[in-house]
Design a protein around this nucleic acid. Structure first.
Length: 721
DNA sequence: CTGTCGTGAA
């Protein structure tokens, strides 16, 4: 038993490994009860006294009368029964498994799942009848789906519909309609009692046809006819609900299972784990997972991939760490799919460094990355603007001859746009046209357009767009947006209008992103050009144009602005809301509507579009304008200085240090923001100085601020209240 | 041949 983990080891792996209070490991209410339960049980000297049901189980299944039965230890099941040979070997397997978490089998351990899978009944013995019956099933499948046609066909059954023969036919039918007809037919024949297995086989076929309602009806028939529902029944119901995206139904049936006192086996448990993961119910997943682990369940690669993916979707780095630590403590070597899932998850959690080291570990362990691995990593390096790592990886891909597919090539092209690698993008694009066995599609064209666009290469971008429209590649809204952005920056307004109109003729539907792009162009144009772009925006989103008109009218009240703004923002997809607000502020400032700009910034803050804009600690107050446009950042700075003046007038306590950050300029939006911000600081004669070692970091001391406020009393910058 | 779960693109 040298390699066996101790109970303490197991629970050490459950400890939070970060003190972040966002960690689910602190917030999960089920964590502490679980641990307490474990120690109560494992420290008990009497092996006979069963532990009381833990409170967390009662919370989830309050009406279950037999919960303590469910905690029946697996050890008593295995040791008290007269084991068959098969069970004996299973037991030995469990006890000698090097990484078994079962510490002492003579002690009872609370179990929430049955570690023994429900057994399948004996396979059909080999029998010449089988061929006949299968052939018959095929004929039933091929006949018309009407009941009359079916009843006619069934007359030709080659052998009497005994229990075994019926089961064979039932299991061989592919169409769920036929399965149901045949099932009902054998039921009316009443040659033998309908057992659970008949329902299970029928349900499996119905699941293939995604007929959840019919499955639920059958299950209710079983309950009414007092036919036992077993683990196979429940797992079939649950997975069918899942495939039909009826997650609430999946959960409902799992809870019903608990209420009847049936203990899930590992198959049912795994299925439910995935249900909760897909619902994003991290707390429930972890609670189920830990309870199963405490029962001695050893998770497989798939279960851990399910956890990893879930944490990735939640952007939860601690969770991803937990999965890695868990595998280490289980002595499990991740396979290719698990690595891919975790790399993807680390990308979503914004951890490029950890992704890189995990990739190195993967390659060192001898696993060859596939297209999905490389796609995930290329995307991560591109988004992080890690040019060196990205190019090194690309070189490594070439020298190792790792296979590429369309996804990977397109991700590489997008990375080129992020890093400004025009030549590399062109070379890859040509390779795709000539030597690879897939052609560039609309994603490829869009990525290359974006590369040209962010490099300011307008003519190449236009030429590429022409090529795209001529070669029959779908002209999509993303490509149009990239090109329009590029033409806007180059002030080629008539080309811009032509491209927009061409796209509309081609059936492109403008989306919020395109509207945001048009609005940003409006914000830096003047005169007749503004009207030309407004006309395009009128076509794409008339409400936005009305709102802009409203902003420009003096008589519009703040109340009206607030109401209309709310309507606009609610109708906008979440990740376009902040850009919208930024653009609207820019438009106001460009049109000398400074008061409106402050109103918009206020509402944007109220609607949570600028989280973390201002943070206060006793030592420093910080204004973070990283995600703001130039106009919005200037507005925010004015607002802040105004507030500071007031604070000083009212003799409130101030911190030692004041900081404003614009970011270093690695992000597209931040380019030029630092310099624009600096001139704004000068304009207001504010005492902030840009740090010499860190661009985009502006600092002022308390003394600076107080002196500044006193020199310019009375404050005139606090425009809105 | 009564049941489960995992990987990629603005």
């Amino acid at each position: 038993m040298a390699a066996t983990l101790s109970a303490a080891d197991i629970h050490c792996t459950l400890q939070p490994n970060s003190d972040s209070n966002r960690s689910i490991f602190f917030t999960s209410p089920l964590r502490l009860p679980n641990r307490r339960r474990f120690f109560t049980v494992s420290c008990s000297s009497s092996s006979k006294s069963l532990p009381k049901p833990p409170p967390d189980l009662e919370d989830i299944h309050p009406q279950n009368p037999s919960l303590s039965d469910q905690l029946k230890s697996i050890s008593t099941t295995l040791l008290n029964e007269n084991p068959t040979k098969d069970q004996q070997s299973k037991k030995t397997q469990l006890l000698t498994k090097p990484k078994s978490t079962w510490v002492n089998p003579t002690r009872p351990k609370p179990s929430v799942l049955n570690l023994q899978r429900q057994k399948k009944t004996q396979q059909y013995s080999h029998n010449p009848q089988i061929r006949d019956l299968k052939h018959f099933a095929k004929k039933l499948d091929e006949c018309e789906t009407s009941e009359a046609a079916f009843m006619e066909a069934i007359e030709e059954i080659p052998h009497p519909p005994s229990r075994e023969n019926s089961l064979l036919v039932l299991n061989s039918l592919r169409q769920w309609q036929k399965t149901l007809l045949f099932f009902n037919w054998i039921k009316t024949q009443k040659l033998f009692p309908m057992e659970t297995i008949f329902y299970n086989v029928a349900m499996k076929s119905l699941r293939f046809g995604r007929q959840f309602q019919l499955i639920e009806d059958l299950a209710n028939d079983m309950i009414n006819d007092e036919i036992e529902l077993d683990n196979i029944t429940y797992s079939t119901i649950i997975t069918c609900a899942k495939r039909c995206s009826l997650f609430d139904k999946a959960v409902e049936w799992f809870e019903r299972m608990y209420k009847t006192g049936l203990m899930p086996d590992e198959v049912t448990y795994s299925a439910v784990l995935d249900v909760y993961a897909q619902l994003g119910k991290v707390g429930e997943v972890m609670s189920l997972y830990e309870r199963a682990r405490a029962s001695g369940w050893v998770p497989d690669h798939i279960a851990l991939a399910v956890l990893g993916k879930m944490f990735g979707e939640a952007g939860d780095y601690d969770g991803i760490r937990y999965v890695l630590d868990e595998m280490k403590s289980l002595g499990m070597q991740p396979n290719l799919v698990v690595y891919n899932t975790l790399l993807e998850a680390l990308g979503k959690a914004g951890k490029p460094g950890l992704a890189r080291s995990l990739f190195l570990e993967m390659v060192e362990s001898g696993i060859t990355p596939n297209e999905k691995t490389l796609t995930a990593l290329v995307k991560i390096y591109g988004k992080a603007r890690w040019a060196k790592d990205a190019l090194d990886l690309w070189e490594q891909m070439r020298s190792n001859g790792w296979r590429m597919d369309l996804f990977l090539c397109n991700t590489l092209l997008s990375m080129c746009a992020d890093l400004g690698l025009e030549e590399e993008a062109e070379r890859l694009f040509d390779d795709m046209k000539e030597s690879m066995n897939f052609r560039p599609n609309s994603w490829s064209y869009t990525a290359l357009l974006n590369t040209y666009g962010s490099g300011g290469n307008v003519d190449k971008a236009m030429k590429l767009f022409d090529e795209m429209s001529e070669t029959g590649v779908e002209v999509n809204v993303m490509a149009v947006t990239c090109l329009i952005q590029c033409l806007g920056r180059a002030k080629r307004i008539d080309d811009l209008v032509r491209v927009f109109e061409f796209a509309m003729e081609r059936g492109v539907k403008p989306d919020d992103r395109l509207c945001g792009c048009l609005m940003s162009i409006i914000s830096y144009f003047e005169g007749e050009d503004v009207n030309k772009v407004l006309a395009l925006l009128q076509h794409a989103n008339p409400e936005l144009v009305s709102f802009i008109k409203l902003l420009e009218q003096d008589k519009t009240s703040f109340e009206t602005i607030r109401e209309e703004f709310r309507g606009i923002i609610n109708a906008t997809i979440v990740n376009a809301r902040r850009p919208f607000c930024n653009c609207l502020i820019d438009i106001c400032r460009n049109g000398n509507l400074h008061e409106r700009a402050h109103e918009l910034l206020y509402m944007g803050t109220v609607y949570g579009l600028y989280p973390g804009l201002h943070t206060k600690t006793p030592d420093e107050w910080r204004l973070n304008v990283r995600s703001l446009s130039v106009g919005a950042a200037n507005t925010a700075f004015e607002e802040w200085m105004g507030t500071l003046s007031k604070t000083i007038d009212q003799k409130e306590e101030l911190p030692k240090l004041f900081i404003a950050t614009t970011g270093a300029g690695t992000h597209k939006l931040a380019e030029g923001l630092a310099s624009a911000f600096e001139s704004q600081v000068k304009k207001l004669a504010a005492p902030f100085r840009q740090s010499e070692e860190k661009a985009g970091l502006f600092q002022a001391t308390r003394e600076d601020i107080v002196a500044w406020a006193q020199s310019k009393a009375p404050p005139s910058l606090a425009v809105t209240s």
